[in-house]
Design a protein around this nucleic acid. Structure first.
Lengths: 258, 258
DNA sequence: CGCTTAATTGACGCTTATCAACTGTGGTGG
DNA sequence: CCACCACAGTTGATAAGCGTCAATTAAGCG
């Protein structure tokens, strides 16, 4: 009604594109029809025809290299981004100027929801590894939502889930020890990232630094390090630079739930 | 498309209504056309005709007395509620069984956003004073959003704002002292509640208990009490049971911003 | 007017931050 | 290929902030 939702040429963005001009380089590699995320991302439950409408407004961007920005805090808010492959974080400067990590995003996750209704993005979105994203221009997505009730519902559900997740982890996390916050985080990582598990053991490759994890959990790097050391001496995990081994997954799940 | 948005008889809720059966008692008192919140709540920017559509799906509930539940954590998620007058809080039981206050709501605020996409409400919503609310059945609201793009946009914006507000207060609040968290909270109260201010002084009547404030700020009641005592001895506030006087509003604003 | 609960105050201890030193790691250039 | 550097990560010592426990005072309610 307010907007047409025809083309995907997008008209002059110039901020979300990779600095090296690599935007859409892998277009064919990951269009919606082949994307294995199409049943989990916004397109879940849509008919083929409706998926086509969604595909028309999207385009693939990337690959973004580790440390490269998908968008920056100064940029005008225009689009949401689905992580097709790879991982990203969002971070802001605190009052004192230190960088605070406000979220991690993995395959199928939507980045940019935090800025809906704002003029500008409120965070830097930084790729943590080689990352491909699917850009969803927000105005066009809104228009499409008006025509496709399932899509509107899905977007609202995702927003509600995000609010709940923050509440359960960060808000309620204020009342639990750093150790349990970490265990909760590791549990989440296990669900998100494919973890090679043999029997009761496994491991996760960490795309982010320990410092990022500490910031996200509301801890100092030193404190997180101490927690990791303790869990290792307890025989629950084995701590590496870019990887954490789980020696007793059941123990982790038990610790978290009480 | 999926639902009709005609009547407002709502078909058997039986959970949100006041126990005393006082639902809609003040219907005439606060229908949308007279409601002074109609330009600030979801109806902002809507034409008279569109407002009529919104009014058709809503009804006023209450008054809820202090301590009375607008909805409870077991209840099936069906509706959002706009606070027409009064105030409310949402709270959950933590792991240990203690009640945690996750939010306060004042005039024009939407309660229930936290449960969008869930089967059941995730909180108890409790009135803090004599409170009237406007019920928005969510399915009907969704349908209406499909027909009224401005309404869809408004709902999305409100969700985005809620995410940002939580991030700025709770998430970033983990890195600041209890004293500053309180000052930030008082500043917010000043903006929400009408504060009688003479020159550089003023006061807020607190609809919630000190214990509720402490919980919301992530503090123990004892710790909050100490902060209040300190601020009083610093000459910034005067602390009463149900009221806080501001002796130096500028000092509060200054303290918060660094 | 007595009861129940909220709020305050004090003493003490624990979790985590802070400061500092050291170690490991990855990247760069000779 | 190795030496060097920059920085992430770890470890230790210390302290600040807040939680916990206990006792007291104040406030709301029948």
């Amino acid at each position: 009604m307010e907007k047409n939702i025809t083309t995907s040429e997008g008209g002059g963005d110039g901020q979300a594109a990779s600095p090296q001009g690599q935007a859409a380089k892998h277009q064919s590699e990951l269009d919606c029809s082949k994307c294995e995320a199409r049943h989990r991302c916004l397109g879940e439950g849509l008919s083929e025809e409706q998926l086509l409408g969604l595909r028309k407004i999207t385009r693939t961007l990337g690959p973004f290299q580790p440390g490269e920005a998908i968008f920056r805090v100064e940029g005008k808010f225009k689009s949401l981004f689905v992580i097709q492959s790879g991982a990203a974080k969002i971070e802001t400067a605190s009052f004192e100027g230190a960088k605070l990590v406000d979220g991690f995003f993995f395959r199928d996750d939507l980045v940019g929801l935090e800025s809906i209704g704002a003029q500008q993005y409120g965070h830097d979105a930084i790729a943590l590894e080689r990352t491909l994203v699917c850009e969803l221009p927000f105005n066009q997505l809104e228009s499409l939502c008006s025509f496709v009730p399932r899509l509107q519902r899905k977007l609202l559900i995702i927003l509600g889930q995000k609010i709940r997740y923050t509440n359960e982890t960060i808000v309620h996390g204020r009342y639990v020890s750093g150790e349990k916050r970490l265990l909760f985080f590791l549990q989440m990582l296990c669900e998100k990232k494919i973890i090679k598990k043999n029997d009761n053991t496994g491991s996760v490759d960490l795309p982010m630094s320990k410092g990022d994890i500490a910031s996200y959990l509301g801890l100092r790097p030193e404190s997180l390090s101490r927690v990791l050391t303790k869990l290792q001496s307890d025989g629950i995990i084995r701590n590496h630079t870019k990887k954490i081994e789980f020696l007793d997954i059941k123990a982790i799940l038990q610790q978290v739930c009480r």
